[in-house]
Amino acid sequence: MLDCKHNTELLSQSLERRITWRERLAMRMHLMMCRGCRNFEKQLAFIRKAARELPRKL
């Protein structure tokens, strides 16, 4: 079973590379059961969006 620590690593890496279907499966399984990581996933997407918006907000 994937733990939260490794799951967050995978979530982060999925922004950097194409993750394998095995990894994706493990990630989805974990996310189904873990609210903390679900929140983390959404926040990760928000952080990327915000950082990319920053040049327009200077």
């Binding site: 733990d3 620590k5 990581c37 929140n39």
Partner: peptide
């Protein structure tokens, strides 16, 4: 990283929902 996760790899304090993040922008 050590502070955020327990030894078993679980969140020490699981992330809570963020209220209206889009509006923050």
């Amino acid at each position: 990283v050590d502070a955020l996760f327990k030894e078993n790899g679980r969140w020490a304090a699981p992330p809570q929902t963020w209220n209206e993040p889009e509006q923050s922008m």
